[in-house]
């Protein structure tokens, strides 16, 4: 049922560009400051700063960021 439009898979963190409305919540609450808005106002991740803690996933109101921990984890 969820649409799987152009998701950008950066390592284990999956960002659904079309679901992101650029509210900035994940950026503000990411403990490592690893997230920022790209030129199209969507979320982008700086891989080296990110430690896959998954805080962004829990904060995102639109399920636009999904932390894909292991092989069997649910990738929506």
């Amino acid at each position: 049922m969820p649409c799987l439009a152009n998701k950008i898979s950066a390592g284990e963190l999956i960002i659904y560009q079309d679901r992101c409305k650029g509210c900035g919540i994940c950026i503000a609450f990411c403990p490592r400051g690893a997230l920022s808005l790209n030129d199209r106002g969507r979320i982008a991740r700086e891989v080296e700063k990110c430690n896959l803690c998954g805080i962004c996933e829990t904060f995102c109101p639109d399920f636009a960021i999904v932390l894909n921990k292991g092989v069997n984890s649910l990738n929506a």
């Binding site: 509210c23 900035g24 919540i25 950026i27 503000a28 609450f29 109101p61």
Partner: peptide
């Protein structure tokens, strides 16, 4: 403010 300010 916006969502971030309100959450903060």
């Amino acid at each position: 403010g916006g969502p971030v300010e309100m959450l903060k």
